[in-house]
Amino acid sequence: MYSIRLVVFAILLCVTCGFSRYIETQTVNLICKMLPCNPPEMLVGKFCAAMEDNDVNGDGRVDGTDIGADLLNYNFDDDPCIVEEWEVVARWTCRYGYSKEYGAYMYKQFDVNQNGRVTAGDFITLNFTNADFLMAQYTRFKNAYCGDPKNRESPVDKMQCDEVDKLKPADIKCT
């Protein structure tokens, strides 16, 4: 009898977890359909869009205050204080045109203090010139993300990683 209960519990747990991931995926897909998504086609455009979005006050620097303000663009669940993984995935796929896998990767990068929650406080100490922020976008995507072969499996990642492989630092300019 105990083993039957254990099996039923395991099945329910697996179904619930799988259903939860399904719901998150459907939510991301729905948000992307509702938002005016028009991501840049080329990677340099994606890097530049991220830089522009994150220099909220237009002073030529991306700092923690700017990023904290930009995080409001990630608020799809009416909780502006905490950013959930599915919100980052929705924003990075819709606004920038990256894969869902890269959006999930970025969520992990956003949790700077590694407490399992992404808030504006995770970015408080960041302070880049726009040029440095732009180069950080390129370097992170090329080396940290595309440098790992497992991150080249989705069709979007394969195409974008092949594109970044052809780019050189001198190519990363916003005009």
Rank of each mutant, 00 (worst) to 15 (best):
Y107G: 00
V7G: 01
A144W: 06
V28W: 06
D79F: 09
L43E: 10
M34S: 11
S20H: 12
V56F: 14
K33N: 10
V118G: 00
N73K: 15
V56C: 03
I23W: 13
N57A: 03
D165T: 12
F9P: 01
T125Q: 10
S99A: 07
G97D: 03
L6N: 08
R5T: 01
A10Q: 08
T25L: 02
L134D: 12
D171E: 07
A50I: 14
G147M: 11
L30M: 06
V7L: 15
F133I: 04
D77T: 14
F9V: 14
V83T: 15
Y102S: 02
M159W: 11
N57R: 12
P80K: 08
L134N: 13
C48W: 11
R152E: 04
F9C: 11
F123W: 12
L126E: 08
E87Y: 11
Q26N: 08
S154I: 10
A50F: 13
G60L: 12
G103K: 00
K168V: 08
C81M: 08
K142V: 09
F9L: 15
G103N: 00
V28K: 05
P40M: 08
P149D: 10
K142C: 09
T125V: 07
E24Y: 11
N75D: 15
Q137G: 06
G18H: 07
Y22D: 04
D63E: 14
T125S: 12
M51F: 05
R21S: 03
L72T: 14
